[in-house]
Design a protein around this nucleic acid. Structure first.
Lengths: 332, 332
DNA sequence: TTGTATGCGTTATCAA
DNA sequence: TTGATAACGCATACAA
C-alpha cells in the first residue's frame, strides 16, 4: 500500500458528487458575496464536501488569489525569552479560527526580507523591530500589510505600536528611589544583541534618576555566571550602590545568585528589581520584585491589528502605552 | 501610490529578459538533473533574475509539485517549557538553507489533523507525541513523511524516536540513592496535561527504587505556589522523606521556594533534583542538581531525520537513547 | 541544447 | 440561479 498516494479530493469532485458545477462549490465554500445560492443547493454542496472529506488546497487558493493564509512573523535574532512564546501563542490563537497560520521566522537582524515575503506572499507581516522603511514601503506597495511593534522608540504612522521601554526603566528606578535608595546600579545582560531593549531601558532609568535628583545609575554587565555576577555585586557595593535595576528577570536571577555566593543579601545589602515577571520570579530567593510589561496586552493588540488590516479596516487605537505594572515582592 | 500593486516578476519575465524560454529559466533555477545547459546560458538567466529581482512564487511551485516548502511542526497543547524553543530554533536553522520553513502549530491534543495537513500539503510533518496510527497512515499514503519523537513509550517502526522518559526518572532516583537517600518523594506538576511526560518519568523512578530495594517514591503534587509547595515539603518531611525527584526544574524551583518559606534547607532537610537543566538552574538557591535531556541532540536528530525522509533517503539511526546527563550542583 | 504545451486546484468573469 | 472558462506561476514530458 505504501505510496498508493490517492489523488486528493478537489472541488471538481465535490461538484460532481453534488451535481453542481465546480464554480458553485467555490461560491458556497467562500460565501461569495453577490451570489444568490438557495439554501437547498448550499446544503447539498456542504454535505458532499463532508462525505468526500474535501479540504481546499491552500497552494491553489494562494496562487489564484495572490495571497496565502499565512501571517509571517519576523522575529529578530536576539534572545527574547518567554515573552516571545506568549506573543506567538496569542497570535496563533487569534488567527486560528480565521484560518490563518502563523509562520514564525527568526531572522538575523536587518537582513533583507524581500526574498522571504515575496515567496510566501503572506496575508500580513508582523515584526517586533522597526523594519527598514524602504522595505516596509515595498511590502505595502505589494499589498502586504505590515504590523510592527516598534520597540525602539515611538514612531507615528500606521501599524506601529510604541512599546515604551523607557517607561520600564523609569518605573524600576522610581521604585528603588521610593524605597529610599540613592546610589543605584543597572545590570546589563551579557548578550550585546539585546541592546535594542537595553539602551532605552537604561535611558529610562537614567532620566528618572535625573528627574529625582539622584546620581546616574552605575551600569555593569552581569553575565549568566555566578562568579562574574558576584564580582559585579561586590563592585557595586564598593561604590556605595544599594540597589540595582536588572535588565530583566534572568539577569536578576544571576545577580541574586552571585550575591548569595558573595555573602550578600537582598534587599538589605543590595536590592534587586527585574523586568518581565517570568513564571519563576516568585520562586527566586528572595522572591523577585519586578516590572511586568504585560505582553498579553501587546500580543492581543498585535493580533487584532493584523486582523483589522487584513480585512482592510482601520487599525484599533494603540494602547496608550503598554500596561506596565510594578510587581512588588521581596527583593526590592 | 497606495495600492499600485506592481505585478510580480515571474519566470516568464526572466525568460524574456534573458532571451530564453520559461522552461529554461525553470531548469537553471532548480538545477534540473538530466538537462544540459551551458554555463553561458545559466549565467545569462541568473543575471536576469538578479536584475529583475525575481523570486519564485511558493504557491505556484507548491501547486505544481503538490508539495509545499513548509514543514509542519505539530506541537501538543501541554506546557513544554524552554526545550520547545530549542527544538524549534534548531529545526528552523536546519531547514533554512534547504529553503524549508517551519510552520509551528499548537494543537489541542489528539484533535484530527487532517484539515491542517491537507490544506498545507507540507513537505513533512514533525510531531512530539505519538499520533493516531490511522492518521499517520493517511499522511504517509498521501506522500507526506511523518517524523515523530514519541515521548510516550518506545515504539518500533519508521520515523519514531524513542525518548525514554523512563530513563530520566530512573536517573534521578539513582542519584538520590547514590547519595544515601532511602525514602524519596516525587514532585508532580500541577498541570494535568503533562501526564504524558510525568507518568513515564514517575514509573522510571519507581522501578529504579524497586530495583534498588528502596521504598516507592511518595508522589505529591507541587503546584506553582509557594504556600502549597511549602505544605508539600512539610508533608514529605513528616513521612520521613529526605529527597525528592521533581518533575522538572520549574517544579523544583517552586519546591525550593516552598521549603525556604517553611524554614527547610536543601539538600540537608530535603534534597531536590530536577529535570531539564534550564538556563536558570545554576541560579537556584541552592544551585539545582538536575537531569539534562539534551534536547539539542533530539532536535538535531529530528532535523536530519526530516531532511532525509524528504529526500527519500533512509532514516539515520536513532540515537540509542537520548543522551541523558546528570548535572550535579548543590541541591541534591 | 532549448522551446512548446499542458495541467496542478482555485477563484472570478461573463454568459446562459 | 448556475455553469463554462480563463487565468494564477511554475515544472515537466515531449518535440524540435
Amino acid at each position: 500500500m505504501r505510496g498508493a498516494t490517492r489523488r486528493r479530493v478537489t472541488a471538481a469532485d465535490v461538484a460532481r458528487e453534488a451535481g453542481v458545477s465546480q464554480a458553485t462549490v467555490s461560491y458556497v465554500l467562500n460565501d461569495t458575496p453577490g451570489q444568490t445560492i438557495p439554501e437547498r443547493t448550499r446544503e447539498r454542496v456542504r454535505s458532499a464536501m463532508e462525505r468526500l472529506g474535501y479540504t481546499p488546497h491552500a497552494a491553489a487558493r494562494a496562487l489564484r488569489t495572490g495571497r496565502s493564509d499565512v501571517v509571517l512573523f519576523v522575529v529578530p535574532d536576539w534572545p527574547l525569552g518567554p515573552s516571545l512564546d506568549t506573543i506567538i501563542e496569542r497570535l496563533s490563537d487569534g488567527f486560528e479560527d480565521r484560518g490563518l497560520s502563523l509562520l514564525t521566522r527568526r531572522v538575523r537582524a536587518s537582513r533583507p526580507l524581500a526574498e522571504l515575503w515575496r515567496t510566501v506572499s503572506p496575508a500580513a507581516v508582523v515584526t517586533l523591530e522597526g523594519l527598514d522603511a524602504a522595505e516596509v514601503r515595498a511590502m505595502e506597495d505589494a499589498g502586504v500589510p505590515v504590523i510592527s511593534a516598534a520597540v525602539r522608540e515611538r514612531r507615528s504612522g500606521d501599524g506601529v505600536l510604541a512599546t515604551s521601554q523607557l517607561l520600564v526603566g523609569a518605573l524600576q528606578l522610581q521604585h528603588l528611589a521610593a524605597t529610599g535608595h540613592v546610589r543605584t546600579g543597572y545590570a546589563s545582560p551579557g548578550d550585546p544583541r539585546v541592546a535594542v531593549f537595553r539602551d532605552p531601558r537604561l535611558d529610562g532609568a537614567r532620566s528618572a534618576a535625573f528627574e529625582l535628583g539622584l546620581p546616574d545609575p552605575s551600569d555593569r554587565v552581569v553575565p549568566p555566571d555566578v562568579d562574574a555576577a558576584a564580582r559585579a555585586a561586590l563592585a557595586w557595593r564598593a561604590e556605595g550602590v544599594t540597589a540595582v535595576c536588572a535588565y530583566n528577570d534572568e539577569v536578576a536571577f544571576a545577580l541574586l545568585a552571585g550575591m548569595r555566593a558573595a555573602g550578600l543579601r537582598a534587599p538589605d545589602d543590595l536590592a534587586v528589581i527585574g523586568v518581565d515577571d517570568i513564571p519563576l520570579a516568585p520562586f527566586a530567593s528572595p522572591p523577585l520584585t519586578t516590572v511586568s510589561t504585560d505582553v498579553e496586552a501587546l500580543a492581543a493588540y498585535l493580533a487584532t491589528a493584523v486582523l483589522r488590516r487584513i480585512e482592510g479596516r482601520p487599525l484599533p487605537a494603540a494602547p496608550r502605552s503598554e500596561a506596565i505594572t510594578l510587581v512588588v515582592r521581596a527583593s526590592a
